[in-house]
């Protein structure tokens, strides 16, 4: 699993103001902290950056690359800012993201081609969020086809099927997993990634990691190649690195509909069991899901 640290983000209450003020120190400290936590990429999310986006992304890339050797994922919807970042970056780089709205798709793919960058193919269509696994499949085929036409190989495309919060619509949570199980056949050789923490958006902060980790295991089962994650969740990193087969086993048992002797589980594993039940849609989410 390739892990992409999510913490350098304009929405962050600590890092966001430093980004706006162009104050390098907190950003570089965060970059170092994420690097030490053991992730593989750093995401630089500058948001839509409507004003002075080019200067902003250029500055961000230089600032972070002075503090960390990790490859970067450049995260903005401003394509001029994206291009400025691609020009400034040294080494491997990932564009986050290229979506299917016609005006974004063409320019995004062209940038990936010109700068020899990998790209996240976000399955967000002209009509917004795909409604189910099949619409995701249609979008995936379209984006891969267009990229291939330009000579971009599948190994450079990281498909993002879009994770949505469990507290909003469980069918979307299930559809995203279902799509992951189809991706290998639809687009052989393509990579994949997800904005993992979105699964727990709206959930009380201290409980979010249970959802993030469990959902990651469910997607990993179908070959998830990478995820944008909370770099400071040690258990999540341990799971991604294959160091917690006990947790993975329980989640797989729930996915397979096997009966699990919950009485024999540790308190920790019981929480994964309950979380997997919720994410499978077998029991309904509430903020107290771990207690009932």
């Amino acid at each position: 699993m390739i892990l992409i640290g999510e913490s350098i983000n304009i929405m962050s209450q600590t890092i966001g103001p430093a980004m706006k003020e162009r104050n390098p120190e907190p950003i570089q400290n965060m970059a170092k902290a994420e690097t030490n936590a053991g992730v593989d990429y750093l995401d630089l999310n500058i948001g839509p950056a409507r004003k002075s986006g080019q200067e902003f992304m250029d500055w961000m890339v230089r600032t972070v690359q002075a503090a960390s050797d990790l490859p970067l994922s450049l995260d903005t919807t401003n394509q001029d800012a994206m291009e400025a970042g691609l020009k400034a970056v040294k080494g491997k780089v990932l564009m986050n993201s290229v979506s299917l709205q016609p005006e974004r798709l063409e320019r995004g793919l062209q940038l990936a081609k010109t700068y020899n960058a990998d790209l996240i193919g976000l399955l967000w269509g002209a009509e917004g969020m795909p409604r189910d696994a099949n619409e995701r499949a249609v979008h995936a085929v379209n984006i891969v086809f267009k990229a291939n036409e330009l000579g971009i190989g599948n190994e450079h495309i990281w498909i993002d099927p879009i994770v949505s919060p469990v507290s909003v619509e469980i069918n979307q949570v299930k559809a995203c997993v279902e799509f992951m199980s189809m991706l290998g056949e639809i687009a052989p050789g393509c990579r994949s990634t997800v904005g993992l923490s979105n699964i727990s958006n709206g959930t009380p902060t201290e409980l979010r990691p249970w959802l993030n980790r469990t959902y990651m295991i469910m997607l990993m089962r179908y070959g998830l190649y990478s995820a944008i994650v909370d770099a400071f969740d040690k258990d999540l990193i341990a799971i991604a690195r294959g160091n917690r087969p006990d947790i993975i086993k329980v989640v797989h048992q729930v996915m397979d509909g096997e009966s699990v002797d919950t009485a024999s589980l540790t308190e920790e594993l019981k929480k994964y069991y309950k979380t997997a039940k919720v994410l499978r849609g077998e029991s309904l989410y509430s903020h107290s899901w771990l207690e009932v």
Partner: peptide, 11 residues
């Protein structure tokens, strides 16, 4: 909201 409905009944 179904999730909040369940939560309130739990509480």
């Amino acid at each position: 909201d179904i999730n909040l409905a369940k939560q309130l009944n739990i509480l």
